[in-house]
Design a protein around this nucleic acid. Structure first.
Lengths: 227, 227
DNA sequence: GGCAGGCGTAAAGAAATCGTCAAGGCGTCA
DNA sequence: TGACGCCTTGACGATTTCTTTACGCCTGCC
């Protein structure tokens, strides 16, 4: 059974999630502030964590960093509207995905499933990431289309694809992509991303104008879809 | 049981790794600075070493060189964000792999497995690598053309071909080729590669100007094709 | 409707990388 | 000593990639 820790200061929301998730065979534990959340995290070792960004005592980003210091459990962030910057910070700090309040329970459940599925896979050591239309071989540094044809990628294209593939299913912020591919000094030059994402799509997507794998999350970043 | 030595000045991280790796049947010893790390290295003779780049007393690259002076145990480097340059230096100095902090325990475990696997099976998976036009006999250290004629290779040409053949289908970076053939100090002298690749192609390729086996991946490295 | 901001696409000049030829150095061996 | 093989180094054109500019599209907002 999958265990979930929810950290949020809204008692009503906690209760609602407890009921809804328990009914879906999740084992739920809760905490109402950052301090007790981190304590519960160490105590319970949950499979997934859901964290609200607007905690009373500790900044949500710091909570995420505190968790990421020693755990790789998937983290899903809850945020109110208008907290765009905090959302990006949270993702940069190591969160996997985010949901904006108010949200439907179905959306959260979908994110939960995606997160646990990803964590269950041996993830790294995984020599290749495969989709229906192409396979990214992370060891051989090769991309093969379903037709069997090799795709020639330039070094930058490859690095970009590698970051997205290693984080498949999770949202990667533009800042993180720029940092990992171009280096620490390129925090805001999002133009590169647009150019190179277009090139990757042209080479990999069946219909580059309507991407199926290399998805844009407006205002946030990019994501390689999990399917 | 595989023994691991972890050299890092972060006491929390040491403790976390000790717990996590011990649970996975690794025998863990630790050191919190470069000096005691090198001492522990000589004392314990671990199968794998994990080294942090930001040690308080000795530069991480120097620690790696100190180890590489007399041991060929796999070295995995830990580096914080923004230490890109040091990472490259560390690989040039002889490190085998690197992990960027913060990292998940699963990622580290995967790298550990990969490192020990590589070290355990240094060679002899395949006694020979054959193509339609020539055969590379890795045991006899010979190359025979389809016509039956022997190809005379110089020692350097042979070493280069051997690395490519053992990694057939996989992309091998210029740095790795230089490291394996010319030694750790030749991290950027890509000129050698160009000269020797041309010579190999002249001797092995049916049409050296349009290589079929010894392929260039511009900006990334070389690859011996899988066909 | 008009406007601003974020995103996608195409194309051209600048910069880096690669292939090739050839000359020089160094050691070995007759 | 001289010939030979091998490694190193230099030079230069050809090719590939990176960066930058320009423009069109869409969405949300006034």
């Amino acid at each position: 059974m999958t265990s979930v820790l929810v950290i949020d200061d809204d008692a009503l929301l906690l209760r609602a999630l407890q009921i809804n998730l328990s009914a879906r065979e999740y084992q739920v534990s809760t905490a109402s502030d950052g301090r007790s959340g981190l304590a519960a995290m160490a105590r319970e070792r949950p499979d997934v964590v859901i964290v609200d960004l607007g905690l009373p005592d500790i900044d949500g980003t710091d909570v995420i960093q505190g968790i990421r210091g020693w755990s790789s459990a998937p983290i899903i962030v809850l945020s109110a509207r208008g907290q765009e910057n905090q959302k990006v910070d949270a993702l940069d700090a190591g969160a996997d995905d985010y949901v904006t309040k108010p949200f439907g329970i179905n959306e959260l459940l979908a994110r939960l499933r995606a997160a646990t599925r990803r964590a269950a896979a041996p993830s790294d050591d995984e020599p290749a990431v495969a989709t229906e239309d192409f396979t990214v071989d992370l060891v051989a540094k090769r991309v093969v289309l379903a037709s069997g044809a090799d795709v020639r990628l330039t070094p930058t294209e490859w690095q970009l694809l590698e970051v997205l593939a290693r984080n498949r299913g999770r949202l990667v912020t533009g800042r993180q992509l720029l940092h990992d591919v171009w280096g620490p000094a390129y925090g805001t030059e999002t133009h590169y991303l647009r150019v190179y994402m277009a090139q990757l799509r042209r080479k990999l997507e069946p219909d580059p104008a309507r991407p199926r794998y290399l998805l844009t999350e407006p205002g946030m970043g990019y994501r390689m879809s999990g399917d």
